[in-house]
Amino acid sequence: MSDRAFKGSAKAASADAKIAIRQLSKSYDLGHDQVKALETFDLSIHDGEFVCFLGPSGCGKTTLLRMLAGLETPSQGEIVVRRQTQDRPLTSMIFQETSIFPWMRVRDNVAFGLRIRGVPRLEQQTAVQHFLDLCGLGQFADAYPHQLSGGMKQRVSVARAFANDPEILLMDEPFAALDEQTKITLQQELLRLWNETRKTVVFITHSIDEALVLADRVIVMSGRPGRPIADIAVTFPRPRLVHELKAEPEFGRQWHQIWSLLGSQPQALPEKVK
């Protein structure tokens, strides 16, 4: 295990990174006050890496993800994302709450990204069918979302993002609202899907278990204003089985290590700056 404390040095953002975060910070205006969501930090994420950001609520991890998704802009600093090709979308986001469109059938929801890009219809159908089958949605292709359970809706959301074939997948606590069994099933399926595609994944979670099960690398965040306080390598061999992993002594050791790191942080309080 090569755990290294995170110093936030400029070295951390190397030149060949897939995602290079440099001197990034983000504040929000709340009337007369400004609330700092993210403290200035540097970080790089490499191509094909599965990275989990782990932290207490309010630590700005969702803000970071939304900036990567192009939904928000930094207050200071920059994020440089290295594109492989112009033919594929750069990012697709899987949101925490239900974000699939209730007025589209499951099939059309999964095809959404491809339709937006004007992919030929036949190609769309092949890709959609592939990911419907992979996500266990084959039977529900013509259903409307209101006919599905919460777990099935998140599967549609996952299928929609994968079918869009982006270079980077962004996931904002996609399984947080699900019951434990469904959550573990979907984590397992995500691992399988990821094994096939080996995309760069940035995954936000507040669950230590989830981070250790999924990631190559866990970035532990401080409370607000958020900044990385530790960068932990997770080296369990792949393919991984979620239920087996939890029985490993090393899993328990790392769980405890991260818990101590989080526990050393003061609870998130809004910090006012001028």
């Binding site: 998704a69 192009g70 990012t91 986001m93 974000s99 469109f101 990204g113 937006i116």
Partner: peptide
């Protein structure tokens, strides 16, 4: 709002 966020993230015109 989330539906518009999805549209924006997926690059909808």
């Amino acid at each position: 709002r989330i539906y518009l966020d999805v549209a924006r993230n997926f690059g909808a015109s």
